[in-house]
Design a binder for these strands. Structure first.
Ligand SMILES: Nc1ncnc2c1ncn2[C@H]1C[C@H](O)[C@@H](COP(=O)(O)OP(=O)(O)OP(=O)(O)O)O1
Ligand SMILES: Nc1ncnc2c1ncn2[C@H]1C[C@H](O)[C@@H](COP(=O)(O)OP(=O)(O)OP(=O)(O)O)O1
Ligand SMILES: [Mg+2]
Ligand SMILES: [Mg+2]
Ligand SMILES: [Mg+2]
Ligand SMILES: [Mg+2]
Lengths: 589, 589
DNA sequence: CATCAGATG
DNA sequence: TACTCATCTGATG
DNA sequence: ACGCAAAAC
DNA sequence: TACTGTTTTGCGT
């Protein structure tokens, strides 16, 4: 079966065969069983696709071809090659943060997560086949030396806030797709950028390994300015080297500049893709990972050539299943899609047809709901499978409490629909939802309605429960779009948690550390290590106590596994007005 | 996959689908992986078979058909319908013994074995799909209430000795195929039996549940003689009821008589098959299990009709693999074999062809080496997989020591070939053998040669080691056929362990208890419960301490699992002159 | 002679 | 806690 | 509106 | 020790 997928940066040239075997040999029987079920559904669909193509009449085929041709003309007409779109994606993000903060981790294969599930792995570990979404215990079979470190979502959130501010300087409308992924429309900035910029680069050497980036061993250090100090963390001496770096005016240079600034600020590297639209930029951002960037010329032919040999799986929105579907039509690369486009109407829904055709042509997904507000909010937890209803109720209550907390922190008043999610011990997932006449908002409501749903499922052996609120009602528009609620939150948060107050200062040449207020050189990059150090101190204190459902109820439901994003500190709130959340780049079948 | 097989008495009408699913869901990944490998070998062979049939030329097919026709004529000529062959097989043997000795077990699903492997299950458990050869932990999923009891091989051996003596009365040449399975040629006895026989039947009631058989609750007790006593085991009062039962002169009656006597003696039920040869008798013995018998008339047509719809898997020698092979030729029943016999030469070796044809005709397997002596002797143990050579050596030594002990007890002087068996952590099995110029006999020899072989396999991760000695050299023929060595053993054993001294008394009408010497009524059945009680006392004391390789060596190799036949008490010796071991009833591909 | 596969209880 | 053990036969090289 | 499947990080 | 958690989109009923 297709258990292992190497569609990820840093995972080229692995022995898929062998890795797949190890995975299969260590996959629990019940999970195998589940995978098999999944696979057979795919097989079914594949059979259907082949059948449809087989049985299609001349006319149908002709009609399909025409339909696609027309659509292509329409889409082609919409092609916009005038934009400079950038996708910046942090390298091995969670892992990189942990490596930054613990030098021991920098030279060994490691991953963030638990023996049950990894959030990501560093590039060393990827050489063993270890990757995000893989259970830790299996990864350990692939790579016995693998070190697992528990994740710290609040920390990653803070770091993300830090560097997203940089992007904001270049595009007031950056879209943060996730903590580590930013979509930046550079068109305007590039057009207006008429001069090169010069930055003082800070790099570190000496016995203290804490700060990044380091000066490469082989670099000639003689002519560099430096400054010695004692690390407040490891107490060893650190030497900071300074030199100037300059960035020109083109989009490539600007992207290099952003990446430079990110690294200066966070000590973390990222990769970038530059193209005529975000869909392409995203693909490009993976091309020279880690710590690289790739430009795709804004030229139709160049784009089509680039796509020609690109495996469809690299395209956002085409996952395991769509890949299989398309493969059954002899489509392996985006180029193949173009060749076979005439078959789409025979096999896929209109939306999927268009989506695939857009992909084939290198056009972005159809723009969708531009309301930046979230559409749902949910909490779910996995535990030892049980059908003991009392235990399930205990877990359920805790989940509702967490959800209610999140709702409050998210500035959500309530929602119209409540959904209960169940995962059976077989891994099959069910949802049960309910839309009462009046808006659900209190903990009591949430708990009452979802419990009602849960009670109807008595007797099932369950391994996960979740509760979701959707059709949300938000705090007054005005409020949510202003800064008032920000301050409400900010009171409870440490200074850094309110980075948005910096937005007026951004272009300035010096600024105060948002933590201790001290002034430092340069722009953002001045507070470079200073801020970093403050953050570390902060997050060290906060030590987030991984979110295990502490089920002390009875006996059986013992150990949930992976860390979730917070609990303990509030710092969620929607990324707010300035850094909008992106909702959709993907369209598919 | 075909993980579950219901080809066993008491397992009809189960939901194979569901059971298979539970099994698959609880099968460890590495074992699944192994099973898959196995299955694909079968698939390959199946493909080859189909191919051969496909590609056979007219001539080849004609030649094959002729060859089979000739063979059939030859075999048909050898048909012997004059014999009264009986196969008697104890019902759920190990389980029945445990149930007998612990009344609590009689009404619940239980199995003999460990959480790693079951030797057998009682009929209640079989309703859940729980059966011999199934790991206990999986059985528990199929039947959570299942009680596991560790086996006690010495006890089963003793009980087997007891009832095999009964069979000896009817056929001086009984073949004990295993502890629970006897092959009795009744021809002569039935011919000479001119009068019915009358036995006093002993059955038990009262508060003491210990003794079997009980008088059925619904039976009218009024007219029965009885005698009260206090059970020496449970101290409750027991009432023994007596009545007479008589058995006539035909073979059915005689078999009923034997079965009656076995139950009177041991408290255990058995089932029997009666037919013109042992191959058929064996099949018949399963037909009315448990506690039943089935006669197959000595008539060619009746036999062929009986076989017509008999699933091939019921035939001795046709297992999982052969079944699959034959099924690929559309052969599901023995009747199908006859229809398709012309294909055999295209697919199977000459021996297999003949074997299958014999089966199809209801003829017994070709008689083979009538040397009743064993051909090999071996010891093997499973442990936590390791590639630590020191640990493997430790285990290896223990195995050699056990083997040497067995060899001594078995009256074997030595052997020419020593074979090392390895099972890798993948479950693949390897053997490595060696035939030195001079006979291997001492522990040192065994250990030295097999270690030599083991050393060549260094680095492999191993889950089982075994050592076998073959091409055996025995103690002088005379000795092995006499009683001298028996006495040597008998000294160390408790009185009952030497039941062979009874062989001169067998046909007598009264006899002394071989344990305490006391005289009791009737023949063997007199000492009925008396002996039983003595046995129980004895075996209770002996409590055999399951044979775990106590690997205290280092750390990893911890827990072997199933019980083996003894260790701790010697009682093996070949079944000796009077009850010969059978070597082969099965011939196959 | 050596190795493996298949079978049985 | 975690897929046995002892034994035989037959095919293949 | 509901339930499910697919996808992303 | 044992296959995550949060969110979105789209299809079908
Ligand atoms: N399947 C997942 N489950 C939970 N968290 C995930 C999963 N995939 C990714 N994440 C988290 C951890 C990642 O560091 C972070 C960013 O994801 P992503 O950019 O895809 O990979 P990455 O940044 O770790 O490596 P890279 O981008 O270098 O390939 O999101
Ligand atoms: N696969 C096995 N592994 C180990 N021991 C076994 C295995 N199969 C059977 N035995 C042992 C335990 C059994 O009680 C004994 C006799 O086997 P067998 O006659 O086939 O079954 P059984 O006597 O338990 O039930 P029944 O004969 O009623 O079907 O041999
Ligand atoms: Mg990333
Ligand atoms: Mg990302
Ligand atoms: Mg039996
Ligand atoms: Mg038997």
């Amino acid at each position: 079966m297709l258990t292992f997928n190497d569609n990820k940066a840093g995972m080229g040239g692995l022995d898929k065969e062998k890795i797949t075997k190890v995975i299969e040999e260590n996959t629990s029987a019940s999970y195998s069983s589940f995978s098999k079920k999944q696979q057979s559904r795919i097989d079914e669909k594949v059979a259907e696709i082949k059948n449809r193509i087989e049985k299609a009449t001349r006319e149908e085929k002709q009609k399909a071809e025409n339909s696609m041709k027309n659509l292509e003309i329409k889409l082609e007409a919409s092609r916009d090659l005038s934009r400079d779109c950038v996708c910046i994606d942090m390298d091995a993000y969670f892992a990189a943060v942990e490596m930054r903060d613990d030098p021991k981790l920098r030279t060994i294969p490691m991953a963030v997560g638990s023996s049950a599930m990894l959030s990501t792995s560093n590039y060393l570990a990827r050489r063993f086949g270890v990757r995000a979404g893989m259970p830790g215990f299996i990864s350990k079979k692939l790579c016995p030396e693998l070190t697992l470190v528990p994740g710290n979502y609040p920390k990653y959130t803070k770091v993300s806030r830090q560097f997203s501010e940089i992007f904001m300087e270049y595009d007031g409308d950056v879209g943060m797709m996730s903590l580590d992924e930013a979509y930046i429309d550079l068109t305007e900035y590039v057009a207006n950028r008429t001069e090169k910029r010069i930055f003082t680069r800070h790099r570190y050497g000496g016995d203290c390994p804490c700060w990044l980036p380091r000066v490469p061993e082989d670099e000639d250090i003689e002519n560099l300015q430096f400054e010695d100090s004692e690390c407040t963390k490891c107490s060893k001496n650190r030497r900071a080297y300074f030199d100037d770096v300059e960035f020109g005016v083109g989009r490539e240079e600007v992207v290099r500049e952003m990446r430079f600034r990110v690294e200066q600020l966070t000590g973390l590297t990222c990769s970038a893709g530059i193209a005529a639209n975000f869909m392409l930029a995203k693909i490009c951002s993976d091309f020279n990972k880690p710590n690289g960037q790739f430009v795709l010329e804004n030229d139709r032919n160049v784009i089509l050539e680039f796509l020609e040999k690109l495996p469809i799986r690299k395209v956002g929105g085409i996952g395991r299943v769509s890949e299989a579907h398309l493969q059954s039509m002899d489509i392996r690369t985006v180029g193949d899609m173009l060749l076979q486009k005439a078959l789409f109407p025979l096999c896929f829904s209109p939306l999927a047809q268009e989506s695939f055709l857009r992909t084939a042509l290198g056009l972005p997904g159809r723009p969708s709901s531009s309301d930046p507000r979230r559409k749902s909010i949910s909490v779910e937890r996995t535990f030892s499978p049980t059908s003991d209803f009392q235990m399930l109720c205990d877990v359920h209550l805790e989940i509702c409490q967490m959800l209610e907390e999140d709702i409050r922190k998210a500035g959500v008043i309530g929602g119209k629909t409540i959904t209960l999610k169940l995962k059976l011990s077989s891994f099959d997932v069910l949802t049960r939802s309910l839309t009462p006449s009046d808006t659900v908002s209190s903990l009591e409501d949430i708990q009452k309605y979802s419990l009602e749903l849960l009670e109807k499922e008595k007797g099932k052996e369950i391994r996960l429960l979740g509760v979701r609120l959707s059709q949300l009602v938000f705090e007054e528009e005005k409020k949510s779009k202003t800064i008032t609620d920000f301050w409400n939150d900010a009171k409870q948060q440490k200074p850094l948690s309110s980075p948005e107050d910096a937005d007026e200062i951004i272009m300035m040449d010096t600024r105060p550390c948002p933590i201790c207020g001290a002034d430092v050189e340069n722009q953002l990059e001045i507070l470079n290590r200073h801020v970093d150090e403050c953050i570390q101190k902060m997050t060290d204190e906060e030590s987030p106590e991984l979110i295990c459902i502490s089920v002390e109820t009875k006996k059986k439901v013992e150990k949930p596994v992976v860390f979730s994003k917070k609990r303990k500190i509030q710092e969620k709130k929607p990324a707010a007005k300035k850094v909008a959340t992106i909702d959709s780049f993907w369209k598919k079948e």
